[in-house]
């Protein structure tokens, strides 16, 4: 072995176009939404518009805090478009890492070389992690840059905490996709499982916030774990961060175990 982490390097470097594309999408979202805050979210007219909407809808869309800078940033970026983009990216990477590679027939050749299956899973999960961290770091930096000009009034430590939770929430969907792909050898199952965690988390949050009768749904929603206490306004719930990152790490370990225990490339 002439270079350290060869599989990580290939997974990370060969996907630079994709990483750059997601970075451009996130940056565009931030530059389109956040500078509008003073004229949209922070304006007195906005409060009037919000008052006219049904309260159930406001809660489902997390717009209840939208007239404050942190609430606006949470509702538009971390809670909606950013969440959507990052979840799609991580799910695509996670599903491709093992399931997609196996389905395309390329994993067989990689495994015929001097690597272990655990190494394949760990290095590719590491490549996914690094890409997620880079994108979230970009989000952090851009929001920091816009905080003053867009009058967002977000404290740096709260932005940092929300970013860590955002990355953890993304990694949970990504590692679920990785795990389902590693168990089944199918990219589609990985995509479905990863997207399922993202979508159900969002839906459980939206429904669970409606009334005390269904608020147990919030306990099942990783989205609610991350964002339930408005981290941009109130600071991160680090225990929730621990759950998001911890479960992601367990899923990566289970992916390695699952791939190590089965035949490769033999689905019908």
């Amino acid at each position: 072995m002439s270079k350290p982490l060869p599989l990580f390097t290939r997974a990370f470097v060969d996907s630079w176009r994709s990483t750059l594309g997601w970075a451009a999408g996130l940056a565009a979202t931030i530059f389109i939404y956040l500078p509008l805050y003073p004229s949209v979210g922070g304006s007195p007219e906005m409060q009037a518009v919000m008052d006219a909407f049904p309260p159930e809808m406001i809660k489902a869309l997390n717009y209840d805090q939208i007239t404050s800078g942190p609430g606006y940033t949470q509702a538009t970026m971390f809670g909606l478009i950013g969440f959507l983009l990052m979840t799609i990216a991580a799910v695509a990477w996670g599903a491709a890492a093992v399931g997609g590679d196996e389905e395309s027939g390329q994993l067989e050749l990689t495994l015929a070389h001097g690597v272990t299956r655990t190494q394949v899973v760990l290095e590719r999960a590491l490549a996914m992690l690094l890409r997620v961290l880079l994108l979230v770091a970009l989000v952090f930096v851009l929001i920091r840059l816009l905080t003053d000009s867009a009058q967002l009034n977000i404290r740096p430590e709260n932005l940092f905490g929300a970013s860590v939770l955002f990355a953890g929430l993304t990694m949970l969907s990504g590692s679920t996709a990785l795990f389902a792909g590693a168990v089944t050898g199918r990219k589609t199952y990985g995509l479905a499982a990863g997207a399922g965690v993202g979508v159900l988390g969002y839906v459980f949050n939206a429904v669970g916030r409606q009334s005390g009768d269904v608020d147990w749904l919030l306990n099942l929603s990783p989205y609610s774990w991350a964002y339930g206490n408005n981290p941009l306004a109130n600071g991160a719930d680090w225990a929730a961060g621990g759950w998001l990152w911890g479960i992601s790490a367990v899923l990566v370990a289970l992916s390695a175990a699952a791939l190590s225990r089965r035949d490769v490339g033999t689905y019908g």
Binding site: G105, L109, G114, V115, T116, Q119
Partner: peptide, 15 residues
């Protein structure tokens, strides 16, 4: 892995 480094493998269907 040490054993597989000593082998050259061409799969039947190459993707």
């Amino acid at each position: 892995p040490a054993l597989r480094r000593r082998i050259g493998y061409l799969p039947g269907e190459l993707f």
